[in-house]
Write a protein that binds this DNA or RNA. Structure first.
Length: 672
DNA sequence: AAACGCGTAAACATTA
DNA sequence: ATAATGTTTACGCGTT
């Protein structure tokens, strides 16, 4: 995950080879503080090596990451964009994307990182993407075969003395040659991998072309954009090709309503081969001049595999007639193209169907329109939020957003933690914190995406401190041994099932570093507890309503952050939901009490000076227990609290539970 | 630009 | 002796 910062890499360099090799050492999971090796070498290196499950080979998750980088990103983006507004060329129509999950709709293509994608999509979705990609690769294979076949045919013909259409591009090798030299240039056959011509001169290599720019007309890119499997992903440009493939897949959807596959015109080729042509090739999307030709764009021929430059339409027509006249080659290419289209159609149909189902599902839910300015103190039972369908505008006017959906939703399995985890992996450590900072209440987030985090190798958008705290608070007696904390991490997050040395070290580091974590000597050893007061202390002032914040959310931090913020806001406004039965954390979700001041933006609440157990500190009752723990031996605590079994939240529970709950909730919002 | 929070690495000490 | 625990320092990055 995260791209290791260059600096890190640099730093580690001197320390010695860090690499996978050394990593393996630390991968032993021993976790000992000794820190094993220096990871480094890059994110991939570290991640791959550190994990116990990584033996130098890519784990499924890593593979997923890798593949995600190839195309799904744009694919999805476009898809989402298309959903929200088929005709909208503006890729940033976030605000208007009311019907699309905010987490997706707001994403800016350029900002979506594979990790974000991962977060946005549920594992099944990711899986689907993978499959799609594989399907595309298979297609590629198919094309290649076809091309080879064609090649052979032509070769045969040629050898038979038949007149072959002359190769357009001068680079055609002498026909007679029996050598592997392609009779048809790879390019002509679509195998060629030159710089994607479709990337117009003005288009930055990595930028995503406006949705509108991708249309059926661009399908030919498949011919060249997709490289042969063996071809190492070239460079960004090349990847772009892949991306575009995905894009192309979606492209058709823009031209037609999501639900139905675009009508197709079935033509019959001269040779009798039915050809499927996407309708309005020319009109759809491409801003082509009235007199343009579907196969002509950006000054060049768009015939699959052909990039011949043509100054004008006239020249192009001429070229078309001469070079792409009716012949075996053209026919074969047409056939291939037809296959491409058909595949895409099928794909589109499937995706459309899925989309419909998703939308239907999501729209059904928002049973509760977000009540706007609700009091900061959420009304119990108000609801859980879902990261769905809320326009940015709605969410940020006051920095508060209300859950569009109704709480009942227990944890939706594998629901992508879109909003909350948004910016996670996009960058270095700090970056991921962003979302954290923006507060998504950890318990809420966790509750909702429990399954997701549990199964997806996605890094949770919380700081170690917040996670540790959460782990501790989830237990009946609010204390855990280091090992138990470790276990919690691994149990709750797939992500922490690897890189053990790294994160364990981080956990220990955090425990020691933060005053909020108090080590208590217990009979059996030492346990860690949380000093809620301290924890609260470290929380930076809230950003509620801060223009700056909003601004950041909207622009600076990438949509991911925005989403996170949004989610956080939602969550904050709906604490009660934390207590919903669906909550995964039995222990933590015990309280229905309105959270105290804490979150909601209230800057730090001045801690009342009730300091019960902690003399020096004025700590509100809620915090007292923590403090006690801290100052008292574990036994004391145990006495205090026999330890209500971690059962579902029991509102009726009296005192102690309350405290607990409060504590939990308070912090609920994770820092800030 | 500085301060701060966070993640990561790593050296070192202590304990089981 | 070894591994698990803890503590501490350092560095880089992003945000405020």
């Amino acid at each position: 995950m995260m791209v290791e910062s260059a600096s890190e890499t640099i730093r580690s360099a001197p320390s010695g080879q860090n690499g996978v090799g050394s990593l393996s050492g630390q991968a032993d999971g021993g976790g000992g503080g000794s820190g094993g090796g220096a990871p480094a070498g890059g994110s991939a290196g570290r991640d791959a090596a550190a994990g116990p499950d990584s033996n130098g080979e890519m784990s499924p998750a890593e593979l997923l990451h890798f593949q995600q980088q190839q195309w799904p990103r744009q694919f999805l983006l476009q898809q989402s964009s298309g959903l929200s507004s088929p005709g909208n060329n503006d890729s940033k129509q976030s605000a208007s994307a009311v019907q699309v999950p905010v987490s997706v709709a707001m994403m800016s293509p350029q900002m979506l990182t594979p990790q974000q994608m991962q977060q946005i999509l549920s594992p099944p979705q990711l899986q689907a993407l993978l499959q799609q990609q594989q399907a595309l690769m298979l297609q590629q294979e198919y094309y290649k075969k076809q091309q080879e076949q064609l090649h052979l045919q032509l070769l045969t013909q040629q050898q038979a003395g038949k007149q072959q259409p002359k190769e357009v591009r001068g680079s055609v090798p002498p026909p007679a040659s029996p050598s592997p030299t392609p009779l048809l240039s790879p390019r002509a056959l679509g195998v060629r991998r030159g710089p994607p011509a479709f990337l117009g001169p003005g288009q930055p290599p990595l930028s995503l072309p406006p949705i509108a720019a991708v249309c059926p007309t661009d399908l030919p890119q498949l011919w060249k954009g997709e490289g042969a499997p063996g071809q190492p992903a070239e460079d960004s440009v090349k990847q772009e090709g892949l991306d575009l493939t995905g894009t192309a897949t979606t492209a058709t959807s823009f031209a037609a309503p999501p639900k139905v596959s675009p009508p197709l015109s079935h033509h019959t080729l001269p040779n009798g081969q039915p050809t499927v042509l996407t309708p309005r090739r020319d009109s759809s999307s491409h801003e082509e001049t009235p007199g343009s030709h579907p196969l002509y764009g950006h000054g060049e021929c768009k015939w699959p595999g052909c990039e011949t430059l043509c100054e004008d339409l006239g020249q192009f027509i001429k070229h078309l007639n001469t070079e792409h006249a009716l012949d075996d080659r053209s026919t074969a290419q047409c056939r291939v193209q037809m296959q491409v289209v058909q595949q895409l159609e099928i794909q589109l149909a499937k995706e459309s169907e899925r989309l419909q189902a998703m939308m239907a599902h999501l729209h059904m839910r928002p049973s509760e329109p977000k009540p706007f300015s609700q009091p900061l103190n959420p009304v119990p039972g108000s609801s859980s939020f879902s990261k769905v369908t809320v326009s940015a505008a709605d969410s940020f006017p006051d920095g508060l957003v209300h859950p569009p959906t109704s709480a009942a939703a227990p944890v939706t399995p594998l629901r992508p933690p879109g909003l909350g985890s948004a910016s996670l992996h996009s960058g270095g450590p700090a970056r991921r914190r962003t979302s954290d900072k923006f507060c998504s209440p950890i318990s809420s987030e966790l509750a909702q995406n429990h399954e997701f985090y549990k199964n997806a190798d996605v890094r949770p958008p919380f700081t170690y401190a917040s996670l540790i705290r959460q782990a501790i608070l989830e237990t009946p007696d609010r204390q855990l041994t280091l090992n138990e904390i470790y276990n919690w991490f691994t149990r709750m997050f797939a992500y922490f099932r690897r890189n053990t040395a790294t994160w364990k070290n981080a956990v220990r580091h955090n425990l020691s570093l933060h005053k909020c974590f108090v080590r208590v000597e217990n009979v059996k050893g030492a346990v860690w507890t949380v000093d809620e007061r301290e924890y609260q202390k470290r929380r930076p002032p809230k950003m509620t309503g801060s223009p700056t914040l909003v601004k950041n959310m909207i622009s600076g931090l990438s949509y991911g952050a925005l989403n996170a913020s949004y989610q956080a806001a939602l969550a904050e406004s709906s604490f009660p939901l934390l207590n919903s039965p669906g909550m995964l954390n039995p222990g933590s979700a015990s309280s229905l009490l309105p959270l105290s001041h804490d979150d909601m933006g209230a800057p730090m609440e001045p801690l009342p000076s009730n300091g019960s157990s902690s003399p020096p500190r004025l700590s509100p009752p809620q915090y007292s227990h923590q403090v006690q723990v801290k100052e008292e031996p574990a036994e004391a605590e145990e006495d205090r609290r026999p330890g209500p079994p971690l059962g579902p939240p029991n509102p009726s529970t009296s005192g102690p539970p309350e405290d607990r709950d409060l504590e939990e909730e308070l912090p609920g919002e994770e820092l800030s």
